[in-house]
Design a protein around this nucleic acid. Structure first.
Lengths: 217, 217
DNA sequence: AAGCCCATACCATAAATAGGGTATCCAGCG
DNA sequence: CGCTGGATACCCTATTTATGGTATGGGCTT
């Protein structure tokens, strides 16, 4: 993962021939890398990843025969210490997040004025993450997103307390004592919670509440 | 949030006088901004944020009288549509994540060769996130880390299936049918799950499992 | 080969829950 | 000033859980 020894063994995956050739040229001119394979299809890349030792995968995502994320996944399986970087025009949230989750640690947009391939590789090897600013925004947005509450019927304060108690495994009686209310009142609140969360029992309610971020985990 | 009309009203927060003056100079030379305030302390910044309309806060984090994150929080309260960017030497995970969670959408390291202030502002106003690559790595690492399981007794595959069923509110009988097992076998697995998660009932188990990231929410 | 864990199966009982009603008090709102 | 909704309280019953045992076969590891 970290910038270790000598030449960086690179697998390049890019279906556009001119661009691929350009990348190959840049990598050849550079002294620090060894281009293991320059692939035009996902299939070729998967084979290359299986057959050679690899330190770095630079992959496009929209390929004629599949999705570059597959290559990233394969890389993580076969070469857990290698890095994966995306170079693509795709910048929608779903794609970007899927790529990052698949293990990509770098993500350059193709529309970047001039892709500084070598610089990006060196950043990567130094343990940093070269990422285009529009991609970075997606990540930032994602991190701050737990504060989402659409389609969420609000629970009353009392119901929130009950809900927290349920999550901690309290029984009716314990809940009643904890909140100083009648043991008979507890199930009323719980039933209201079920209605609002579209749940039919405690565990489902806790699950739904967790999913909607109503419980601090 | 998005780059809208004319001059960007900027509040600058930087305790180091030379650097602050440099930033002031850059912003003055630039045509697109209006420097609302150049603050040397957190206190000054909080006051400035309360008193003026603001589109952008550029803040250092380690301040003599407090933490710049406070300023970011204040910005989000008073000017929800404004952007916050961090310019700091701090790059530890905790600080970075706290800043992002507080609402920072940009984060430049001071050790960047030459901070392209104007360029960063324009990126920000265009809805992108200028972020130093070492900071970006922290975000990327964070996103992929839900796979953390310290102190977590692993559940068997069978137990995971049962757990998911519990979260969906299935009863013993439904669970048994769903997983094609005897109705009597179900509670055995459930009891094992309780033991491993230190829970005493379904809702507590779901809560613990959620907390430990065992359930995809 | 012995041991351990997982998965499977069954039985029985006490406790807890879900779901159905009904009713009072109070606060906010048109 | 009524109406509505939240919070409170009580009752009853069928269903579901939780928990205690006991036991067998398969698979993996030592």
């Amino acid at each position: 993962m970290t910038g270790t020894s000598g030449a960086v063994r690179v697998v390049l995956l890019e279906d556009d021939a001119p661009l691929r050739e350009r990348f190959v040229g840049i990598l050849s001119a550079w002294g620090g890398g060894e281009l293991v394979a320059a692939c035009a299809t996902l299939e070729q890349a998967l084979v290359a990843l299986d057959q050679h030792p690899v330190d770095l995968l630079m992959a496009d995502l929209n390929l004629p025969d599949g999705h570059g994320i597959e290559a990233i996944r394969r890389l993580r399986q076969r070469h857990p210490d290698a890095d994966a970087m995306v170079i693509s025009v795709l910048a929608d949230d779903e794609t970007v997040l899927a790529a990052i989750e698949a293990g990509a640690v770098g993500y350059l947009l193709k529309d970047a004025d001039s892709i500084e391939l070598v610089e990006a590789i060196e950043e990567l090897r130094a343990g940093r993450s070269p990422i285009s600013s529009s991609i970075a925004r997606i990540l930032v947005r994602r991190m701050n997103k737990p504060a989402e509450d659409p389609a969420g019927p609000a629970l009353t304060p009392r119901e929130m307390e009950i809900l927290r108690g349920i999550a901690k495994g309290f029984t009716y009686t314990e809940l009643a004592e904890w909140l100083n209310m009648s043991r008979q009142t507890v199930p009323v609140h719980i039933k209201n919670i079920y209605r609002k969360l579209a749940a039919n029992n405690r565990s489902e309610a806790v699950y739904e509440a967790s999913k909607r971020g109503l419980l601090r985990l």
